[in-house]
Amino acid sequence: MTILVTGATGTIGSLVLQGLAQRGASVRALVRETGKAALPAGASEVVADMSDVASMRQALTGVRSLFLINAVTPAEVTQGLQTLALARDAGIERIVYLSVIHADQYTDVPHFTGKYTVERMIEQLDLPVTVLRPAYFMQNERQVQSVIQGYGVYPMPIGSAGVAMIDTRDIADVAVAELLRRDGADTALPRLTMDLGGPELFTGESAAKVWSQVLGCEIHYGGDDLQAFEAQLAQYGPGWMAYDMRLMMNRIQQHGMKPEAGTAQRLEALIGHPLRTYEALVKELVATAA
């Protein structure tokens, strides 16, 4: 039977698709337009829209396992709940859902509460799902690398509470391991929720220090000004998303993003290799840009 990967052309979904294909799984990529994405060898595509019930019913036909990820959009909650309901109708009992760390606590952040709403459906219906709750993606730093290197400022207002940044490749490795574990089981496995976080906690100041060491020049932390952060984001995207990100950063400044104790060790045992470090990611970004 087949594993269906939603978000198959996105940051995480594409890595999950690649990882499953490399391990010889029968994998199907959900795409919105045929032929636009370069798929790994052995993967097939199915064209569907997660807001369209008929196309999703067709996409889920013949599927044994599902990787569910929803983009941050105004329709995120509807798409997540609807896809899970359709998967249940199709008899799919092996699912991995990508949520976010502290989804149950950051109640004023729309995309966090949206993911927690999906988690509540999973819990109340006791669906056979692994819920993955990752912290801040290290690869988000690509979006601000030009500012860091061009102006000597680390601009992400993550504050001083501490963020366990995690590499997206490690997130994908965990998702692949869980999909294969569930897909290979004779019967549906119990519901499971897992925090995903990197091996170190970072503040704005300590992240800037890593960039300083790698670049060999002084990088300063830009501070905690959330009004300026929102205004900057609003220049390049919709206002609702800029405000959503501001609310998220406000919570990060207050509480941080800290997984349960022992998380890094459990993840490394699951994926079979050490978690990637922030310093290694920064070195990779700098080398790629050179």
Results as ranks from 00 to 15, higher is better:
I92E: 12
G114A: 01
D195M: 12
Y136T: 07
P238I: 07
F229L: 09
L233R: 14
Y136E: 11
I95P: 02
G272L: 05
S212R: 01
L17W: 05
A25I: 01
H273D: 06
A21R: 08
M156D: 08
A59E: 12
I3A: 01
D170H: 10
T193Q: 13
E200V: 11
L285D: 09
I3E: 00
M249F: 11
M257Y: 06
L215K: 01
E93F: 01
Q105T: 00
R169A: 03
Q18M: 12
K209I: 00
M138V: 15
V5T: 13
T107L: 10
V286T: 10
F202V: 03
A135V: 06
A29M: 05
L285V: 05
T78M: 15
L132N: 00
L68C: 12
H111K: 13
S146Y: 08
T83E: 12
R23C: 05
E178A: 04
R182L: 06
A41V: 11
Y221P: 08
L281F: 15
D104E: 15
T168R: 08
E260V: 02
L226P: 07
E200D: 09
V210W: 07
T193N: 09
R120C: 14
F67S: 02
A29K: 07
A228Q: 09
M241T: 15
G19H: 06
M245L: 15
V118H: 06
P155I: 08
E93I: 00
V147A: 02
V5L: 03
Q58C: 08
M165V: 07
R251Q: 14
L66H: 04
E205P: 03
A290Q: 14
G13S: 10
E45V: 01
L86I: 04
T288E: 13
E123F: 11
S65C: 09
D167S: 14
R246N: 06
G150P: 11
L201V: 03
M241S: 13
S212C: 04
L20K: 00
M138T: 14
Y154N: 03
T117V: 11
S206P: 11
T83A: 12
L60N: 14
G222M: 04
V153E: 03
M257W: 07
T117S: 01
I171Y: 02
Q18H: 12
M257S: 06
P199L: 04
A43E: 11
M121C: 06
G198M: 09
V16P: 02
A280V: 09
L192I: 07
V100I: 13
